[in-house]
Amino acid sequence: MGKQMTEMLKGTLEGVVLALLAEQPAYGYEITTRLRDHGFADIAEGTIYALLVRIEQKSLVDVEKVPSEKGPPRKVYSLNPQGRDELEEFWKSWNFLAQHIEQLNTTTNNKEN
């Protein structure tokens, strides 16, 4: 993944993870796997675990410890009402940016042709 893509992803990854949790609760490894299933193959597990700590500290998720077949209990994250509000704001911001960036792209491409 290029540096520009990495920087863009840093700014949106929290929203992406909140969107995954809106679909269904999950634990850290599950989130990483689902991200990879959606094409985000280069994201390190450590990045996701650090993000989960941040969204938990920001009270955007509820956390339940669930027994694991192997090792310590897993922390299962589910989106709470504050997290849903944050996700809604993320989508509003994303849609605004995507629309305006696409307008710039279209304008620039038309001028080049």
Rank of each mutant, 00 (worst) to 15 (best):
E86Q: 13
Y27R: 07
L104T: 13
G83L: 00
T12I: 05
Q99W: 06
Y49G: 00
Y27W: 10
L20D: 03
P25M: 05
L52Y: 02
D62H: 09
G71H: 08
L9M: 07
A19S: 12
T33W: 14
D62S: 13
Q99S: 14
I48Q: 06
L104E: 14
E102I: 04
E64N: 08
Q4T: 14
K70C: 08
R36K: 15
Q103V: 09
N105P: 00
I101H: 12
N109I: 01
N113P: 00
G15W: 01
E88W: 04
V17D: 05
T47P: 02
E102G: 10
E23Q: 14
G83P: 03
E88R: 11
K65C: 03
K10E: 14
G39D: 06
L60D: 07
E56C: 04
Q82I: 06
G28L: 04
F90L: 04
V17A: 01
L51I: 01
T33Y: 15
A19N: 11
M5N: 13
T32R: 15
A44H: 13
T106L: 06
A26I: 08
A41Q: 15
L35I: 08
K58W: 00
Q24W: 00
L79S: 03
E64L: 10
T12S: 14
E112V: 10
Q103A: 15
I55R: 05
E7F: 02
P67K: 09
E89Y: 11
L79P: 06
R34H: 10
K10Y: 01
E23P: 04
S68H: 08
K70A: 13
I43A: 06
G46Q: 09
K58N: 13
D85H: 04
E112K: 08
F90N: 03
S59G: 08
W94T: 09
R36Q: 14
H100M: 09
K70R: 15
Q57M: 09
L97Y: 11
G39V: 10
I43P: 04
D85C: 01
G39S: 03
N110R: 14
A41G: 15
I31L: 13
E30L: 06
S59P: 01
W94A: 11
L87H: 03
E14L: 04
T32Y: 05
S59Y: 01
K10V: 01
A22Q: 11
E112C: 00
L104Q: 15
L35E: 08
P25T: 01
Q24L: 03
G83W: 00
Q24Y: 01
T6Y: 09
H100C: 02
P67Q: 12
T12K: 11
M5I: 14
N110L: 05
T47A: 10
G83V: 03
P25A: 13
K65A: 09
E56Q: 08
S59V: 05
Q4P: 03
N110I: 01
G71P: 07
P72S: 15
W94N: 07
R36D: 10
F40W: 04
K92M: 10
L52T: 04
